[in-house]
Amino acid sequence: MPSSEKSLPKDMDRRDFLNVAAVGLTGIGVCGAAVPFIAQMNPSKDVAEQEKTEVDISSVQPGQTVKVVWRGQPVFIRNLTEQEITEANAVAMSDLRDPETLEQRTKAGKNNWLVTMALCTHLGCIPQGGNAGEPKGEYGGYICSCHGSAFDTAGRIRRGPAPTNLTVPPYRFISPSVISIG
């Protein structure tokens, strides 16, 4: 009897070992082969690498919101009025589900420019309040009519099922009147 067989468990002969090894390796092979079939469903390169969006904001008046497109998704750029800024700063942090100050959500010295994704953080509808004449909800910011989430003037969640504030996308001011999103 070859000595290697002695190291196998008692009830397992060489044939069993070969079976387990063959089936096990086949399983690993199948998993490996599945990788490309799962990966092909990810966004293709042309979708994934959509470039930055530059927006000229010089014509956006206080109290006005514009909707722009970044990576195929809508973004709100809102020029807050003095009153809206005061309202946002007056809210106690303890009243917020996702505590953040307006300062944290905007760029330094540019507190009036609120740039957020125009997608409700609940299930991705576009909230109302961006276009003139649309309801802004009881907190004066945005209201999502799909499932009833209301946002305040800093785009923070105040009521309804959305878990977090409207997402602030990565952006920077490349000049006082132009921002680059992405």
């Binding site: 293709s44 998704q73 299930l123």
Partner: peptide, 26 residues
């Protein structure tokens, strides 16, 4: 948009799963 959004509640990888199902960000 809304139904694939349901998958975004999966901890950590939810948003990745949503994008994988859609094959894009929306």
């Amino acid at each position: 948009q809304v139904i694939t959004g349901l998958f975004s509640v999966v901890p950590f990888v939810g948003e990745k799963i949503r994008i994988w199902i859609l094959g894009g960000f929306s």
